[in-house]
Nucleic acid binder design. Sequence first.
DNA 1: CGATTTTGACCCGCGC
DNA 2: GCGCGGGTCAAAATCG
Length: 112
Amino acid sequence: MDREASSRLQLPQDGYEWKKYGQKFIRNIGKFRSYYKCQRAECNAKKRAEWSETEPGDLRVVYEGVHNHSSSLQDQSGSSQSGASSTSANQYNLLNQVFGDNPPSDYRRSGD
DNA sequence: CGATTTTGACCCGCGC
DNA sequence: GCGCGGGTCAAAATCG
């Protein structure tokens, strides 16, 4: 499946396995939106990616749900990620990150 | 052959 | 209540 050179989009690897299960163009924001689901059975985490059809630098990824298994990427040495016990694995519910060198406006205000 | 992706259609919720 | 938008699932095609 290396249609990436033609159709596939290059999504920033976050260390998890995602299976694309849908893609639609949201006229509300005028951008494309892709829907990914975690490949893990014990994991019910979902990922949403949206990017403008003309501005490749405007890629937004929204994570939905929480993972209960360790990721292939990321350094889990210093973290006590046993698995699905204790204080959940990744509690980043509805976390939206903006990729690119030119964020929309203020994706993460330091001073709040 | 299996796995994964792609496109379409269908369904549901909310708005008016 | 209906319409629109958004979201999900299914089938088919493709790649390794």
